[in-house]
Simulated assay, not measured.
Amino acid sequence: MNHSALYVTVSLSLLTATILTVSSLPFAWWIVYSGSRWVTLGEAILTLTLVLPPAVLGYLLLVVFSPDNPFGGFFAKILGHPLPFSFEGLLVASLLYSLPFAVQPVSQAFRQIPQSTIEMARLLGASRARTFFRIIVPLSLSGLWTGWILGFAHTVGEFGVVMMVGGNIPGSTRTLSLKAYDDLLSMNDKSAWESIGYLLLFSFLALTALNLIRRKGTSRESIEVTRR
């Protein structure tokens, strides 16, 4: 098996999951704590990719990423090449496509933190930033890990968006899902099953990790209830 598709998939998924985990923090803070009247609209925009067909989203991103578009032209000047049909373009598309999977678990974790805990920190003189990084973020680690795992797993399984934006270029933008598709079309069953095996392995590991996080969170809540 040519392992370039495996390398592209793992590299893309790791980068996407890690960047989304960091970027989910300000988004989740704004949703939960800002009190803005635009939160409902903002959440709808952030979760739009959950309901848009991947091929439609991929086409829209191709339009936005075009060098003739201000956004795409800006990145083309920085990178020295257009975003479409490049690994960098694939990464930006994956970030936008998987954003809700990272933001929603972190937002939910923020909501579960008792308001009294935050108010107590503020009464003791902690600044808003110190409260966020020393109280809110440590208490939301399960949400952050959940968002990371979901972002990774969702990126591993991408097909429509990576096909439209990446162009299925071997060694650059061809992922395991695209390689499996190509192998099935060419009746190369052995190679296709190798790609499918990796996809199944990543999915199994992701679901196992999510279940462990969920069980750990449930056990912790049971201990707190017992203590009360």
Rank of each mutant, 00 (worst) to 15 (best):
M1N: 02
N2P: 13
H3F: 13
L6F: 07
Y7E: 08
V10P: 00
S11T: 14
L12D: 02
S13K: 09
S13R: 09
L14A: 03
L15K: 09
L15A: 15
T18K: 06
I19E: 06
S23L: 15
S24E: 01
L25C: 11
P26T: 13
P26R: 11
A28V: 11
W30F: 15
Y33D: 01
S34F: 07
G35H: 09
R37Y: 09
R37C: 11
G42C: 08
E43P: 06
A44H: 07
L46E: 07
T49M: 11
L50N: 02
A55R: 06
L57W: 06
Y59S: 13
F65G: 00
P67D: 10
D68C: 10
N69Q: 08
F71D: 04
F71E: 05
F74G: 10
F75V: 00
K77Y: 07
I78P: 02
L79I: 12
G80N: 08
G80D: 08
G80K: 05
H81C: 12
F85T: 06
S86L: 11
S86N: 10
F87G: 00
E88H: 15
G89Y: 06
G89L: 13
L91K: 04
L96Y: 02
L96F: 03
Y97C: 12
P105E: 00
R111M: 14
P114L: 05
A121P: 00
R122L: 15
R122W: 13
G125K: 04
S127C: 02
R130M: 12
R130P: 04
T131W: 13
F132R: 00
L139S: 15
L139E: 13
S140G: 03
S142G: 06
L144P: 03
G147M: 01
W148Q: 00
W148K: 00
I149P: 03
G151E: 08
G151Q: 07
A153S: 15
H154L: 10
T155G: 07
T155Y: 06
V156K: 05
F159G: 01
M163T: 08
M163G: 03
G167H: 01
P170G: 15
Y181M: 05
D182A: 10
L185G: 02
S186G: 05
S191V: 09
A192E: 01
W193N: 00
W193F: 15
W193G: 01
Y198M: 14
L201H: 03
L201V: 11
F202G: 04
S203H: 05
S203V: 10
L205S: 00
L205G: 00
L205H: 00
L205C: 04
L212V: 13
S219L: 15
R220P: 03
R220M: 13
R220C: 10
E221F: 12
E221T: 11
I223Q: 14
R227A: 15
R228W: 08
